[in-house]
Structures are given as structure tokens and as C-alpha cells.
């Protein structure tokens, strides 16, 4: 079958849109108040917790824990369910916590039930310093008491919330752009060795589609940034560097448009294409790693993965990359046929 990759790309995109939108998010703690508990040796301390995607009213055993830095747990005294995503909890906190410095340490808040499993907010609750007051109810639990529920859900992240799904649209389109550019560079090299104009046209069409993907990447990133970082454009290093790289590639379009002789145009654009790919690599892959960036996996030496991309995300993310790449090849094939036709008309 000649057109297999076109059918495959459509199937993959249908899968990405359906799975990317329908797989639910894991539960998470959105907010809690107050952020600092004042310990009174005679009274319980109250916390009001707002969560996302939890089922407090359906669950039978809602428990709230406070985790100490030494992995011991303090259990709630009483949990009052207000709605599916809201509860009020009271704690009895002993005045002397083991291995705990009230000036530096904070307690991790853990909410769990048998439907949603557990979710936590690291270093959430601070307590006031009341060392000296003696209390006698010190009951700690082991961390293994927490209920784990296996489920195929996307991870919940603060600030990101549902926008973690943009991984399949914004991040994957950049990956597809890189694959198309590598393909284009390969054909530039083939042109420089063989002087075959077919390779020149293949390279030009792949670069054109890759640049369209890059523009889409910048615009979708801008939209994502608005609802997570607060503005459409920040001074983040990766944003500015990728915009610069796009300008370098825009010059490729102008170069091709400005030279009328076919052979000169092919030779110049092949060399410039290789040059701009190297520039892109330096601007987008190297420089952002030297400084801090809002993008995950920058300002360090990351591989693909870590905590930000777990296996549930990968199950949609990798098909998305393949899907966009195949659609990119499809469009670049149409563009290649257009260039071929144009050349014939010019030669008449």
C-alpha cells in the first residue's frame, strides 16, 4: 500500500485527540487554609482542603495525614466532608515532633481514600514553635499505611492542571519539526553530493513544513504560557532563542525567493539549510541549558523524562510525535509536487 503513512497519521491523530482529552487527571490538592497551624496543646487544629478530581462523598474511608521529614505520619482526628472536592479536617499535633525544626521544616499534607488513592502537597503545613509545652498523645504511623490505587491517569501538577495535555500538542509539534528538519538536512547533503534537483526540492519542502510547525509551536506555547505563567510572552531563554531560530529559518525562505537561477538557488539554500540547522541546535538545545528556564528539563542536563513525563503521558506523547511527523511528511510531499510543477512551468 502506497499511502500507508497517510492512513497511519490520521489514525494516530484520532488516537491522540481522543486519549489526550478523555484520560482523566489524577486527583490533586488545589489549596488549603490556613497555611500555618498554630498548635494549642488543649485544642485540635483545623484545616480546610480543596482538591481536584477527588470523590470524597463516594468514598468510605477518607483519611488525611501529615508527613514528618522522617517519614512518620500523623493521622487526622476527624474528617468532615463538605463536597466531592472539599473537606475540613482536624488534627491533634503534639508540641514536640521528632526530628522536626519548626523554623525550617514543614509537614507534607496527604489526602487518601480507597477510590482515588493518595495525593500529596509537599512541605505544605508549617507549625509554630511551642517546644517546652508537654503533651502526652504522641501516636505516629508508618508511611506504608497509605493506600495506593493503581490507575491509568495523567499526573496532576500545580499550576498546570489540565494543561498538562498540551504536551501532546505543543511539545510534540516541536519534536515533529526537528524530525522534519533532520530529513531536510539529509536531502541537502544528498544535493551537495549528487547535484540532483529532486533532493533540493525535497529538502525545501520539508523545511517549509517544519517552519510552519515551528510557528505553530511558538503560538501554541504562547497560549499555554498565558494560562500557566501569566503572560503571552515571557523573557524565558527558550522562548527568545526559539523565536531567533525561527527568524534564521525565515531567512531561508527569503533566500530561496530571491535567487532566480535554479542551480545557484539549490546550492545556496542547501548550504544555508545546514548552517541554520546547526544554529537551531545551538540556540534551542544548548544555550537554554546554561541558564534557568521556565521550561522543564532546562538549566541542567536532562534526558527525555524524569518526573515531568511519566508513562501515562508517554503512551500518548510518542504516538503524537509520530502522527505529526507523518502529517508533516504528507504535507511536504504535496509541497514537493507543487515545486516540481512550478519548475516545469518555469522551464517552458
Amino acid at each position: 500500500m502506497k499511502n500507508w503513512y497517510k492512513y497511519l497519521s490520521v489514525l494516530l491523530m484520532i488516537y491522540v485527540i481522543i486519549a489526550g482529552f478523555l484520560i482523566p487527571l489524577k486527583p490533586g490538592i488545589q489549596s488549603f487554609s490556613p497555611s500555618k497551624i498554630t498548635i494549642d496543646p488543649d485544642k485540635s487544629s483545623y484545616l480546610k482542603i480543596k482538591t481536584y478530581n477527588t470523590h470524597f462523598q463516594d468514598a468510605q474511608q477518607n483519611k488525611v495525614w501529615l508527613k514528618l521529614p522522617n517519614d512518620q505520619l500523623l493521622r487526622d482526628e476527624k474528617v468532615t466532608i463538605l463536597s466531592q472536592n472539599e473537606l475540613e479536617v482536624s488534627f491533634y499535633i503534639p508540641s514536640t515532633l521528632p526530628d522536626f525544626n519548626p523554623q525550617q521544616d514543614a509537614l507534607t499534607l496527604i489526602v487518601e481514600n480507597e477510590i482515588d488513592g493518595y495525593t500529596f502537597y509537599p512541605d505544605a503545613v508549617r507549625v509554630n514553635d511551642v517546644s517546652g509545652l508537654m503533651t502526652n498523645r504522641n501516636e505516629y504511623h508508618d508511611i506504608s499505611k497509605i493506600n495506593q490505587v493503581e490507575s491509568f491517569k495523567f499526573p496532576y501538577r500545580h499550576i498546570l492542571h489540565e494543561t498538562i495535555r498540551n504536551t501532546f500538542f505543543h511539545v510534540a509539534i516541536w519534536f515533529a519539526m526537528f524530525i522534519l528538519l533532520i530529513y531536510s538536512c539529509y536531502h541537502s547533503l544528498v544535493y551537495l553530493r549528487s547535484k540532483s534537483l529532486v533532493s533540493d526540492k525535497k529538502s525545501a519542502s520539508a523545511t517549509t513544513v517544519a517552519l510552519v510547525f515551528g510557528i505553530a509551536g511558538i503560538l501554541t506555547g504562547s497560549m499555554w504560557a498565558k494560562y500557566t505563567w501569566g503572560t503571552f510572552w515571557t523573557t524565558d531563554i527558550k522562548l527568545n532563542m526559539s523565536a531567533t531560530a525561527m527568524l534564521v529559518y525565515c531567512a531561508y525562505w527569503f533566500l530561496r525567493a530571491s535567487v532566480s537561477d535554479i542551480d545557484t538557488r539549490a546550492r545556496l539554500s542547501a548550504v544555508y539549510n545546514l548552517f541554520s540547522f546547526v544554529t537551531l541546535m545551538i540556540l534551542v538545545m544548548v544555550i537554554p541549558r546554561f541558564t534557568d528556564s521556565l521550561h522543564p528539563g532546562n538549566g541542567g542536563n536532562p534526558a527525555l523524562g524524569g518526573e515531568d513525563l511519566d508513562n501515562t503521558l508517554r503512551a500518548v506523547f510518542y504516538p503524537a510525535i509520530i502522527g505529526y511527523t507523518l502529517i508533516g511528511f504528507w504535507i511536504s510531499n504535496i509541497y514537493f509536487r507543487y515545486l516540481t510543477l512550478k519548475e516545469k512551468v518555469e522551464l517552458i
Binding site: 485527540i17 482529552f21 487527571l25 481536584y52 478530581n53 498546570l160 492542571h161 489540565e162 494543561t163 495535555r165 498540551n166 500538542f169 505543543h170 505553530a216 503560538l219 501554541t220 497560549m223 499555554w224 498565558k226 494560562y227 500557566t228
Partner: peptide
């Protein structure tokens, strides 16, 4: 949970 910003990204 900001789901409509994902819709906006897909539309763009």
C-alpha cells in the same frame, strides 16, 4: 482546570 486553554492550543 484550565481545560479550555488546551482547546485553544489545539485550535491554534
Amino acid at each position: 482546570g484550565k481545560i479550555y486553554s488546551v482547546v485553544a492550543v489545539v485550535l491554534i
